[in-house]
C-alpha cells in the first residue's frame, strides 16, 4: 500500500532523506522514530504527495505519490502546518473535510469535539496550541483515510490529553483498521499501541521491524572490568559506566554479543539486562564523541 524505493530528498543542497526504502502492505500502527531533523516530516510529506523526490520515489497504491489525486484522497497528513481558512469555525472545517474525505465520520468528529470540550463555533485560529493539535487529530482520525499519517500528534498537548490520545488512536484503529504512521521522538509514551517501528536517523531508514525486535536490540552487560574490557575491545559499545572498583556496565548490540567468541565460563560471570526500545533508540541516535561531560571538563 505504501512503498519507498531509494527515496532521496534534498532542500537547497541539504539532504533530508537518503536512499530510504521500506514497505507497509497492510493495516498496522507503525511508529516512525527519529530525533529532530531525522527526516520524519519530509518522509510524511513525500508520502502525502506534497514533495517531489530528488531521487527514488514514494508510492501509494503502487502509484508515485507526488501530486497524485488518488494518493491525495486516501492519505491524510496531520501535522502542525495544516492550513485552514482563517475565519472558519470548527464545525465548518469538519463539514468541509467531510466533503473531501468520503470515509469521513462526522458523528465521530462531533462526538470527539464534545469529549474534548471544543466549541463547534470556535474559530481554529483562536485556539491554543494544544487545543489546535487536538482538533487536527480529530480531523485526522475522523477522515478514516486508508493511510493516516500523524506527525508529532501529541506536540503541545496537556499530559492528560496525551494519555487519551494514544488510547483514542488505538480504539479508532480497532474500529477501522488501516495504515497509521505516527512520528515522535518520544517512543516510550506510544510504545503500548505500536506494532512496528520505522527507525530513521540522519535521513536514512536504519531499521523497519516489529516492536519485539526493538525490545531485544541492545543489551546491558554488567560484570568485572577485565571481562567487560574483553567485550569492549571487540564490539561497538553504546555506553560504558563504572560502578566502583569491581563493576563495569556497558551497552552493546545483542546479536553481536551472541555471535561473539567468548567462553561460557566468562559469559556466566556477566549479568545481562534488556534495554527498552526507547533506551535503544536513545543509544543508537546519540552523537558520537564529545559528550556533555567532556565539553565542561575540557
Amino acid at each position: 500500500m505504501i512503498r519507498c524505493e531509494s527515496l532521496t530528498k534534498f532542500f537547497n543542497g541539504t539532504r533530508a532523506l537518503e536512499e530510504c526504502s521500506f514497505e507497509i502492505s497492510g493495516p498496522s500502527i507503525t511508529g516512525v522514530i527519529g530525533v529532530n531533523g531525522a527526516g520524519k516530516t519530509t518522509l510524511f510529506k513525500s508520502l502525502a504527495g506534497f514533495l517531489k523526490p530528488s531521487g527514488g520515489n514514494a508510492y501509494v497504491f503502487d502509484q508515485p505519490a507526488f501530486q497524485n489525486i488518488i494518493a491525495a484522497q486516501n492519505v491524510i497528513l496531520v501535522d502542525e502546518s495544516m492550513e485552514f481558512y482563517p475565519g472558519a469555525t470548527l464545525k465548518e472545517l469538519i463539514d468541509s473535510y467531510s466533503r473531501f474525505y468520503r470515509n469521513f465520520d462526522v458523528k465521530l468528529a462531533m462526538g470527539l469535539l464534545k469529549y474534548f470540550n471544543l466549541q463547534q463555533n470556535a474559530k481554529y485560529k483562536t485556539l491554543s496550541k494544544g487545543v489546535r493539535a487536538t482538533f487536527r487529530l480529530i480531523l485526522g482520525l475522523s477522515a478514516r483515510a486508508p493511510i493516516t499519517l500523524l506527525d508529532e500528534p501529541a506536540d503541545g498537548m496537556d499530559p492528560g490529553v496525551r494519555t487519551d490520545l494514544y488510547q483514542l488512536i488505538l480504539k479508532d484503529y480497532v474500529k477501522a483498521p488501516r495504515i497509521i504512521l505516527i512520528s515522535s521522538h518520544y517512543l516510550g509514551e506510544m510504545e503500548p499501541i505500536l506494532e512496528d517501528i520505522l527507525f530513521i536517523h540522519e535521513g536514512k531508514v536504519l531499521k523497519h521491524d516489529g516492536l519485539e525486535v526493538f525490545e531485544s536490540l541492545l543489551i546491558a552487560l554488567q560484570g568485572p572490568p577485565d571481562i567487560i574490557e574483553l567485550v569492549e575491545k571487540r564490539l561497538k559499545v553504546y555506553e560504558g559506566k563504572n560502578f566502583g572498583e569491581g563493576l563495569r556496565r556497558i551497552v552493546v548490540d545483542k546479536e553481536a554479543y551472541e555471535l561473539l567468541d567468548l567462553s561460557e565460563k566468562l559469559r556466566s560471570r556477566l549479568t545481562l539486562q534488556g534495554i527498552s526500545p526507547e533506551g535503544s533508540f536513545t543509544h543508537l541516535t546519540r552523537r558520537e564523541g564529545g559528550g556533555i561531560n567532556e565539553l565542561y571538563d575540557s
Binding site: 489525486i69 486516501n74 483498521p177
Partner: peptide, 11 residues
C-alpha cells in the same frame, strides 16, 4: 481494511 479506497476523478 475497513477504510475504503477512494478513486474520485480530478474533475
Amino acid at each position: 481494511m475497513n477504510s475504503m479506497i477512494r478513486k474520485e476523478s480530478q474533475l
